[in-house]
Amino acid sequence: MALRTTRVLYNNSLKKWCYNLSGFNKYGLVRDDLLYENEDVKEALRRLPDHVVDERNFRLIRAIQLSLQKTILPKEEWTKFEEDKLYLTPIVKQVKKERAERENWEKEY
């Protein structure tokens, strides 16, 4: 039991360390803000509510502005590992699945 607890703590602390090392949280970004915008991601963004897209655009513009100014946000405004929720990844997975089904359907019929 102690080994399992140590492994969980180690993995969680390692994840936090890697998350903070990546640096995007210092600009107020979340993981899904960094996705490459291919056709699947664009379709997923189209399916999101407008207020979520507006929040994403604000974070991206703020990050660009901070980068140009060569500054970062104050530490209390950084995105925390615990607060970083995947808002776009589930929709992207659904879009990819639908696209694969459509391609399979077109191939067979």
Rank of each mutant, 00 (worst) to 15 (best):
M1Y: 02
A2R: 12
R4S: 10
R4Q: 11
T5N: 13
T6D: 06
R7I: 13
R7P: 00
V8L: 08
L9Q: 14
Y10H: 14
N12Y: 05
S13P: 00
W17H: 14
W17F: 09
Y19E: 03
S22F: 07
G23E: 13
F24E: 02
N25K: 06
V30D: 09
V30L: 09
D32K: 10
L34Y: 04
L35E: 07
L35A: 06
E39Y: 05
E39M: 06
K42A: 11
E43I: 15
R46I: 12
R46D: 07
L48I: 05
L48V: 07
D50N: 12
D50K: 11
H51F: 14
V52Q: 08
V53A: 03
V53K: 06
E55N: 08
F58G: 02
R59S: 07
I61R: 09
A63M: 05
I64L: 13
I64P: 00
L66E: 05
K70V: 04
K70C: 04
T71K: 15
I72V: 10
L73A: 04
E77L: 15
K80E: 14
F81K: 00
E82G: 06
K85Q: 14
L86N: 06
L88F: 02
L88K: 01
T89L: 04
I91A: 00
Q94M: 12
V95H: 00
V95D: 03
A100K: 15
E101H: 11
E101V: 07
R102A: 10
N104E: 11
N104V: 02
E108V: 09
